[in-house]
């Protein structure tokens, strides 16, 4: 039995729990009680208008790929204050999905910096709440490298979540091909 891992990072209220939940075959287990700090999370979440839940932090999902492979999804708040789990979180990870809300772009800066720093492959998915700026504008604002995939998504939809993961794996495959050629 192989266990694979993909990390989904994103700020509070960006839709990361929803994304993990939409593709996971198990109820998204919040590991809140395991290794997070709810008090800070609540303070933060209360600053996001319209967000009523107090659930934050690490989401845990699972996709059984076949008889011998399980893909684990870890949803993590991409902020620097969670740095203490980053290493563990990314160890053995295939890659990462950075979920971005165009209204709070700066929330993703730390994650992207850090992923670039560790040379961890990642894709950026813009969770569309409204008609926001174009993908080109987002790419420019985030100063993304040209080869980093940037896509729109609707985290509520399983198909959209699936597409994000496929995009990441395709990106990984391309990177692999690129490195072997």
């Amino acid at each position: 039995m192989d266990a694979l891992k993909i990390v989904v990072v994103g700020g509070f209220g960006v839709g990361k729990t929803t994304l993990v939940g939409s593709v996971s075959e198990i109820r998204p287990l919040s590991t809140e009680e395991v290794m997070t700090q709810a008090s800070v999370g609540v303070d933060d979440a209360s600053r996001v208008r319209g967000k009523s839940t107090t659930t934050v932090a690490f989401d845990f999902g699972r996709i059984t790929l076949d008889a011998s492979r399980v893909l684990y999804l870890f949803g993590a708040p991409g902020q620097q204050r969670f740095w203490f789990v980053w290493d563990q979180l990314f160890a053995g990870s295939l890659g990462a999905v950075v979920l971005v809300d165009t209204r709070r772009m700066e929330d993703s800066w730390y994650s992207i910096d850090r992923l670039e720093h560790h040379r961890m492959p990642f894709v950026v998915a813009v969770n569309r709440f409204t008609d926001g700026p174009s993908l080109e504008a987002v790419r420019e604002a985030l100063a993304l490298a040209p080869d980093v995939p940037l896509i729109d998504c609707d985290a509520r939809k399983r198909s959209s979540g699936k597409h994000v993961l496929i995009t990441l794996v395709e990106h990984l495959t391309r990177l692999h091909e690129g490195s072997t050629q």
Binding site: D2, I63, R69, G92, L172, T173
Partner: peptide
């Protein structure tokens, strides 16, 4: 079992990736 076992040499095994892709589809 350790998930990290599959990321030999810092890169995922292409065969694995292919199968993951198939499974995701």
């Amino acid at each position: 079992r350790h998930p990290s076992a599959i990321t030999r040499a810092g890169r995922p095994d292409p065969e694995t990736l292919k199968q993951v892709l198939l499974a995701l589809h």
